[in-house]
Simulated assay, not measured.
Amino acid sequence: MNIPNQPKISAKRVSVYYGAKRAIDDVSLDFDERYVTALIGPSGCGKSTFLRTLNRMNDTVPNARVEGDITLDGENIYDPSMDVVQLRARVGMVFQKPNPFPKSIFENVAYGPRIHGLAANKTQMAEIVEQSLRRAGLWDEVKDRLSDSGTALSGGQQQRLCIARAIAVDPEVILMDEPCSALDPIATAKIEELIHELNGRYAIVIVTHNMQQAARVSQRTAFFHLGTVVEYGATSDIFTNPRQERTKDYITGRYG
């Protein structure tokens, strides 16, 4: 179990290389399960690359190399003995573009629990699916059409289905990579509301290019620029009283 005051997930001096190119340079950040942490910064500054180190998604990128230490509850996630499938169940991910499986709504949510053997029978599986869809704020909209394809839902519903799929395996951390960038304002508001509801139940790390969104949903913010973290602290401080000139310039729209 997580020791009080120990961060849920901790990155120490992390650098990421794509071949010879360094995309992340010596980043150290701690993530607490009591907070939503937003990663902000201009396009190409390394936010998403860094996010992907937290559940070893960069393993899937040819010639990507990660240096430094990342621990989950004090355990090194890059240790050769770490089961990556198990790690990604503990550290779930929601991508920029909704990516439901070409299966029924029910099967999208049941997929993870089935792989990990979380349900002993059909009744338990149905309970997990219902609870996950309820937590994702989607149950009332889909409960009468669970056998319909997940890809037939609207974009905003598909993204909430992907969140339901992520939480169905009972993760400890949820990573969100610009989860609203493909959505309209109404769907975006629903996802933001959902992040508020999930807050405190999971450590949530969200990459967003939308500073208003970061201010609305997070309690901690890290400002990335050119592959480094310029400033990290309470969201209210970063937005109203940044310590670094570069942060101030970005927040006030001088570049980005």
Rank of each mutant, 00 (worst) to 15 (best):
W139F: 07
W139M: 01
W139R: 00
D140Y: 00
D140S: 13
D140N: 12
E141F: 07
E141C: 08
E141T: 05
V142N: 04
V142K: 01
V142W: 05
K143R: 14
K143M: 03
K143E: 05
K143N: 11
D144F: 01
D144I: 02
L146G: 06
S147A: 10
S147T: 04
S147D: 11
D148G: 01
D148E: 14
D148Q: 15
S149N: 10
S149F: 14
G150A: 08
G150I: 11
G150C: 09
T151H: 14
T151G: 00
T151Q: 14
A152G: 05
A152L: 15
L153V: 05
L153P: 03
L153D: 05
L153W: 06
L153I: 04
L153S: 09
S154W: 03
S154N: 09
S154D: 01
S154R: 09
S154P: 04
S154Q: 11
G155C: 08
G156H: 08
G156R: 02
G156V: 04
G156Q: 13
Q157V: 03
Q158H: 12
Q159S: 02
Q159C: 07
R160S: 08
R160Y: 09
R160T: 10
L161R: 03
L161V: 03
L161Y: 03
L161T: 01
C162E: 04
C162I: 09
C162R: 07
C162K: 14
C162G: 13
I163G: 09
I163P: 10
I163K: 06
I163E: 03
I163S: 10
A164S: 15
R165T: 15
R165H: 06
R165N: 07
R165S: 10
A166Q: 09
A166I: 03
A166S: 12
I167H: 08
A168S: 11
A168V: 12
A168T: 08
V169H: 00
D170P: 00
D170F: 04
D170S: 13
D170I: 05
D170T: 14
D170C: 00
